[in-house]
Design a protein around this nucleic acid. Structure first.
Lengths: 118, 118
DNA sequence: CCGCTATATTGATGAATGTCAATGCAAGGG
DNA sequence: CCCTTGCATTGACATTCATCAATATAGCGG
């Protein structure tokens, strides 16, 4: 299972983070960007992101997420894995719990790709 | 469901936000937003958006799009239809041609949903 | 060592998706 | 009128996806 690279500030001068409304993007850049948008193109995963982001301390364990989205634990773990592989969430194990948190700047990088250049 | 004192939930946040990083969004909002992200969660559609946006006059006909993406005309029409239904493109028929153009502000609206409120 | 808890993985299944070939359809040009 | 051009729709097919039940793994308490 491959994981998309984390969006960092340094990437923001590459075509990955520059607006798609500028020069036509390459097929490779389109694939990378689309993979991330695809990850958030699911209602459940969007809600998971939202819940994690709004949770106290900015992180949540799986047991905090199953009830809000109303899905089984394996399904929630599945969606979380996709979000981690998309570079949008991090996973930290402490004891028997797995804590998920937003990757700082990841969503902002995607936002930048959508903004029209003035 | 959870007993770890360190992260005792209880309130579940308050940070309002336009974006999804605010308080947990509703299932309906998640579905609406996810539908749009899903539309751009495909490499071909992302390229189509980019090409249309960068094209002279901000619009393109189908015959201008098939070659750049390397797919059949029906497939391109299919993707364009999805983008129109997602509210990201407009379609204007002139003679035998169909011209597609970006919906002003549509992508920026999605970008806003991803930005952290700061 | 035993059981309990939290999470991940596997397997299966029905639904959705991307693609193309074939076809339909409307607008012009001879 | 046909005939060509540009595009949309249909049908079919293979792939991917979302979901759950069952099972596996790993840490912790007794």
């Amino acid at each position: 299972m491959k994981t998309l690279p984390v969006l960092e500030k340094a990437d923001c001068c590459t075509s990955i983070c520059s607006p798609i409304t500028g020069e036509a993007i390459s097929a490779d850049d389109a694939a990378t960007l689309a993979a991330r948008f695809k990850a958030i193109g699911d209602p459940t995963r969007l809600r998971l992101l939202s819940i994690v982001a709004g949770h106290e301390g900015g992180e949540s364990c799986v047991c905090d997420l199953t009830a809000p989205v109303g899905l089984s634990q394996p399904t929630v773990s599945h969606h979380l894995k996709i979000l981690v592989e998309a570079g949008l969430l991090t996973r930290t194990k402490r004891g028997t719990w797995s804590f998920y948190a937003l990757v700082p700047g990841a969503l902002d990088g995607l936002a930048t790709a959508l903004q029209t250049p003035a």
